[in-house]
Design a protein around this nucleic acid. Structure first.
Length: 391
DNA sequence: CCCTCGATCAC
DNA sequence: CCTCATATCGAGGG
């Protein structure tokens, strides 16, 4: 049992972060085991020409040749030109099915479970383990073997006293690994991490930090908070400094969707406004379907337009009242699109991609609305420790 | 204080 | 050559 150094009566939490390894590509390997020893690339084809689009995920064999997520398919193909590589189109419904199967077990046994993404979750095992970090490996092994049996998937698990450390730990060794950081090890572990290992620090923020001379996690941990606030604002600065010290109080809580969106890339850039309307209609239907499945209403609609030169324009509207009307959605989407192009005086517009997002979501059954109200209330009463710090 | 928009992250 | 979905923050306007 690890006691909190500040208070002997409070034991540490014991948090898991589970990450399904190279997920989409691994799903394809399970479906077609003969692909296992070949470079395998799962692609998002955009349909503009036979090779347009990007790499979603690749297996480790493909990564050896420099293939990375987000890379244009064309580049990936050139890197694998002399290999017996496989390029497959993304198949979300299949991956979703495997994901649900895999996560089910964790969700059932954990004290609390939090969905983060199709290949990621957090789980609180504090009670389950009695906060005994020496039991963490057994539990992690147990979960890994259960997932292996039910789906044949491998995963990586990070264990720590909070979500932040668990997440960094799950990424520390991959694939098919377990990394456990007990409370006493946190400071040393976090100090030797790269600054970009901290969730929320990507290329841009790294540069921003470097411009103030901050190049290491330990430097960030002791950097003057006021100066950090000038650089990033109150919330982010506080989050970053806490993170650099391995501190994170955010609880594991059920996922609540806050946005539902779809964006499509057009086969050809559209210059004629008329031709956009049917696309907006089908996008409206798509997001509306998801909205209904989740029994939600929307209050804000966002239309985003990506132009030929990849510049993005967005336009949004916040309604007075929540709505569940698809007609309203379609009408507003149209007028927002027109607003967007007028606002930016795009006389000759070249639309490359267009999307609709609904936000400000709430449950539309009265019962749930009341429950949600109380959930919000209890959270707000306890902001300092509860508020989600994530960027 | 609310609304809107862009930036950033990361999948 | 350049996908898709989501979450959060901060700036700027009103």
């Amino acid at each position: 049992m690890f006691k909190n150094p500040k208070d002997n009566n409070i034991v540490s939490r014991l948090i898991f972060h589970l990450d399904l390894d190279y997920f989409y590509a691994q799903c394809e390997e399970i479906r077609s085991p003969e692909l296992r020893n070949h470079p395998l690339v799962v692609c998002v084809y955009s349909g503009r020409n036979p090779d347009s689009g990007v790499v979603s995920t690749s297996n480790y064999k493909a990564r050896e040749f420099g293939v990375k997520s987000g890379m244009p398919i064309k580049i990936a193909k050139s890197k694998l030109a002399n290999e017996d590589a496989e390029f497959l189109p993304i198949d979300m419904s299949y991956y979703n099915h495997l994901s649900i199967l895999a996560m089910e077990f964790v969700r059932k046994i954990a004290d609390a479970y939090e969905y983060v993404g199709i290949d990621e979750c957090y789980a609180d095992f504090s009670r389950y383990s009695g906060s005994d970090f020496s039991r963490a490996r057994k539990i992690a092994d147990f979960i890994k073997s259960e997932i292996k049996v039910s789906t044949n998937l491998t995963c990586s698990i990070g264990v720590g006293p909070n979500k932040l450390v668990a997440k960094i730990a799950s990424n520390f060794q991959k694939p098919d690994a377990i990394t456990i950081i007990n409370p006493q090890e946190v400071k040393a572990f976090i100090a030797r991490c790269d600054i970009e290992d901290i969730p929320g620090i990507g290329p841009k923020n790294r540069i921003k930090l470097e411009s103030s001379g901050i190049e290491s996690v330990s430097h960030l941990a002791k950097f003057d908070l006021f100066r950090l606030k000038e650089l990033f604002g109150y919330k982010i600065a506080t989050y970053l400094q806490n993170a650099a010290r391995g501190i994170d109080d955010t609880p594991i809580r059920p996922h609540v969707s806050k946005q539902i969106g779809r964006i499509v890339t057009l086969k050809n850039d559209v210059t004629n406004i008329e031709n956009i309307f049917p696309i907006l209609s089908s996008l409206s239907s798509l997001v509306y379907d998801t909205l209904m499945t989740r029994q939600l209403s929307f209050k804000t609609i966002i239309v985003r337009v990506v132009l030929h030169n990849l510049r993005q324009v967005t336009c949004s509207r916040n309604l007075k009242l929540s709505s569940t009307s698809i007609e309203e959605l379609q009408n507003i989407a149209r007028s927002l699109f027109l607003e967007a192009i007028h606002l930016h005086s795009l006389s000759f517009l070249d639309v490359r991609r267009i999307g609709i997002t609904l936000s400000d979501l709430s449950s539309y059954t009265g019962q749930n609305k009341i429950l949600q109200y109380f959930a919000e209330g209890s959270r707000n009463g306890n902001q300092e420790s509860n508020k989600n710090n994530k960027l």
